[in-house]
Nucleic acid binder design. Structure first.
Lengths: 340, 340
DNA sequence: GCATAAAATGGAAGCGCTTTCATTCTTCGA
DNA sequence: TCGAAGAATGAAAGCGCTTCCATTTTATGC
């Protein structure tokens, strides 16, 4: 079992077509099509006969042909930076669950935080005529935007908030997250405030919100390091080392993700700092490990999965002709543990 | 910008077709097709003219039509249990990178460790006529196997090892992993040996290998808990609690994943056990957090990404008519840290 | 300058399905 | 028993591309 012809002939792939089923069942192709797509339009007796033939032959409809003819592919595409980061993975899971329940399939694109790649992916994806597309973030290349709006399909931008989405957006204000964390830390009172973070647009927004809120209180220190997204444990550790080397009083740090915050935390501990008296750290994302770091990490929680769920619903609703609000907000909250 | 017609008319989606381009460029459709797919068959002058028209009109080829006609979709599907577990996410990333480089797209299916869902996904996926398909594991429903072999496309089963793959497999022996861990723990000498794990086929294989190797030395204890995959931190903690409650001497535990091992470790620490004198723990997967647990987790490392990479290569090679060895083995090794 | 091979191009058919729109069966009230 | 309305079914066309083959153009050698 399982010998695979190497591309040679005898490759009858799916020899059985809808026409074959029709012939075997003694009906016309249209009827078979209806039996599959709109069974209630077919007389029970006929339906049963057709289903029997389908089962017997192992017929698998060709959705390429179907999609070409009907202009509906039941395919929804999503472009995310990465999937090995829990943050996007869970959104994908939520998205997928919702889509599958409605008979849609997920076409995945990974952009690696690269807008040029996002553009190429968009082109490749649009070529498959998905019924809808989901993008991460609200900053895209001009060409990407043009291509997308020209394609005339439902679009959802996730993970961020904007008054002017391409079509629809599901997310929250990263600026507000930064401000909230600043507020939180401010209430506890530290001598120094710093931010450690990556350079993707959303992380930058969080930093800006943080900096902005602290503007009148203290300058926010930034480590002198180039940190590309996704930032790593090592990044966090190095950044913290730098901050600590500068000396000064008690330090409050906002990390652009739990990963980087965990690195920072580890460095602080390694240097014997007392947490959170000498050094306080707040992360972002509430990753799985956050409750289990030493000490447990205070962080910002977002319902990641819900982002995917809502994105799917937006698309699905649009496809069924319902109106959808252009901006769906997702909540966030600080989860207080021991690191701050 | 961005108003989305609600399914109404005026939905000319992609108004421009290959025929339009042909007309505008003053050539026949065939020539445009060649300009896109096999540019070297077209005279430079003509090519340039066509490309200009394409750029000007923003033409995006319809791959549904293309795939239908050519019987090649440049689509590769992958079914994995989940994507929010790093373990599969990284394989997906590796897979995707390799595919994209060759102009292929990834169609993703999430089975949630459910074979019935795997079957449904397989059917839905096959309907899109992918050029190849990747499945997780080597145990599938009879119907799934039948459908797959009948479809006549390259198949790769990943994450496990087998002498009789459906077509090709990329992975390693989970049984051997279990045996290796047993060996490792045995060398250190403990009074009791236990395994904590999930119930997916691969986790079970790891347990069996572990149990088998220890057979002549000591009975391997198992907690009395139902643990569905993916097993959780909480599962690990509870399981360890149970094992510790039973009393007895020093204990060596093999967890079916780093997550569950981390939970176990945490419980042991919470009870004041000395690690690794009183309790030793070995995980599986070498997840990102493994070096950062307290104490750092000893575990089994696999090149997860490479599994994806090799899977993609297998498919790609098959598609280009090259021969591919039916079983590609991926190495694994114990990463010794402080927990064992 | 001409025959010949090679390079470019085009015509026709068809991939496997769905969409009108038309036709044939049923059902049911009068 | 008949006719009308509704339920089932079917015929034909076409979705947008590629394939196969034939035809035209260009380059090459003598």
């Amino acid at each position: 079992m399982g010998e695979q012809d190497k591309k040679g002939r005898s490759d009858q792939s799916s020899p059985v077509t809808l026409a074959d089923i029709a012939k075997l069942a003694g009906v016309s192709p249209v009827t078979v099509s209806r039996a599959i797509n709109t069974p209630k339009l077919v007389k029970p007796r006929t339906l049963e006969a057709i289903e029997r033939v389908i089962a017997r032959t192992g017929y698998v409809p060709n959705l390429l042909a179907g999609g070409l003819a009907s202009r509906r592919t039941r395919l929804v595409a999503a472009i995310v930076p990465s999937v090995s980061s829990t943050i996007f993975a869970e959104a994908i899971e939520g998205l997928n669950a919702e889509l599958v329940a409605e008979g849609y399939q997920l076409l995945l694109g990974l952009s690696g935080y690269d807008q040029q790649r996002e553009l190429e992916l968009t082109r490749a994806i649009l070529a498959r005529r998905p019924d809808g597309i989901i993008l991460t973030g609200i900053t895209h290349l001009k060409e990407t935007r043009a291509m997308l709006t020209g394609a005339g399909l439902p679009i959802v931008e996730i993970w961020d908030q904007t008054p002017s989405p391409l079509d629809t957006a599901v997310g929250f204000s990263h600026f507000d997250v930064g401000a909230l964390v600043a507020e939180f830390l401010l209430a506890k009172g530290y001598d120094r405030y710093a931010q450690i973070g990556a350079n993707d647009p959303r992380a930058v927004q969080r930093r800006d919100g943080f900096v902005n809120r602290l503007m009148d209180v203290a300058p926010v220190e930034l480590p002198d390091l180039e940190m590309n997204s996704p930032s790593t444990f090592r990044d966090g550790r190095q950044a913290m080392a730098q901050l600590l080397d500068r000396g000064g009083g008690s330090l409050a740090v906002f990390g652009s993700s739990d990963v980087v915050a965990h690195g920072a935390l580890t460095e602080a501990i390694a240097r014997g700092c007392r947490i959170p008296e000498d050094v306080a750290i707040v992360g972002f994302g509430d990753f799985d490990f956050a409750p289990h770091t030493h000490p447990p990490l205070t962080t910002v929680r977002i319902d990641r999965r819900m982002i995917g769920t809502q994105a799917a619903r937006s698309i699905l609703r649009k496809l069924s002709g319902e109106a959808v609000e252009p901006m769906i907000k997702i909540g966030f909250e600080i989860v207080k543990r021991s690191s701050a």
